[in-house]
């Protein structure tokens, strides 16, 4: 629990036509090689936001190694469901599967629980778009907007003030961006500190479409909301 309250903030907002997820990356620095996160078939840059199944995106806060293990388990559970039932796993069922695993580690001695909280943003035909949160004890609950990690109290109260029940994905992206910029420790935002993802319905196929933004796309989004890091050199020149 302690590790989670220090972990990078992960924020989720449920909209009428989709779900939005954003996360603050903690592991950064000039010398960190980020080239891998720019390329690749996009399942995420591999720190905070992961594609768990074609209809569910997960955001993690806590011990990274534990989180990787849980993400792996979630992906297996989702594929197992696909094998047995030939359908995408319902979002709540996936959350339940992980919570059953997490709960097990609170019951028996000698083993350490997973130090991870997760947000699940997903879609299924039963309850349409959904947002769930699970903690290390194996408790889970559904939310309209919620936040885990550092400063989650501040973010939560900001969300409570600004959230409206008929919010669209477009507005939700704005809400998430504004809330993120206020809660994050750093004053300026950039793609090296932020991960971002949305889950919507494909207008043609009506199938869920998960989009985890690439670093370049995150920068475009930040510029759109005027939260991007100002080019310091440019400022110096004009001064």
């Amino acid at each position: 629990m302690e590790a989670i309250s220090h972990a990078g903030t992960v924020l989720g907002v449920l909209a009428t036509d989709g779900v939005v997820l954003a996360a603050e990356k903690k592991v950064t620095g000039k010398l960190l090689d980020l080239s891998a996160s720019k390329e690749g078939g996009y399942g995420g840059s591999g720190e905070k936001i992961f594609l768990l199944n074609s209809n569910v995106i997960g955001g993690v806060a806590g011990l990274t190694a534990d989180a990787n293990s849980l993400v792996n388990y979630a992906r297996s559970a989702a594929q197992e469901h696909l094998l047995n039932y030939n359908e995408d796993i319902p979002v709540e069922l996936l959350a339940q599967r992980l919570c059953d695993l997490k709960q097990g580690y609170t019951q028996y001695g000698g083993l350490r629980p997973f130090g991870v909280s997760l947000l699940y943003a997903g879609y299924d035909p039963h309850y349409q778009f959904q947002l769930y949160h699970s903690d290390p004890s194996g408790n889970y609950s559904g939310w309209k907007a919620t936040c885990i990690g550092a400063n989650n109290g501040t973010a939560q109260s900001l969300l409570k003030q600004e959230y409206k029940d008929d919010i669209t994905v477009e507005d939700a992206i704005g809400l998430v961006m504004r809330t993120m910029s206020k809660t994050m420790d750093s004053t300026t935002l950039g793609s090296e500190k932020l991960e971002f993802a949305t889950l919507t319905l494909d207008p043609v196929t009506k199938e869920p479409k998960a989009k985890i933004y690439r670093p370049s796309e995150v920068d475009v989004l930040l510029k759109k909301f005027d939260l991007a890091k100002k080019d310091e050199d440019a400022e110096m020149k004009t001064a």
Binding site: N84, Y85, N86, E87
Partner: peptide, 17 residues
């Protein structure tokens, strides 16, 4: 367990399996 039943397509897939 899940409060809603399996959809026909999923139930049929499971039965076939």
């Amino acid at each position: 367990r899940n409060l809603y039943p399996l959809r026909p397509q999923s139930a049929a897939s499971w039965i076939r399996r």
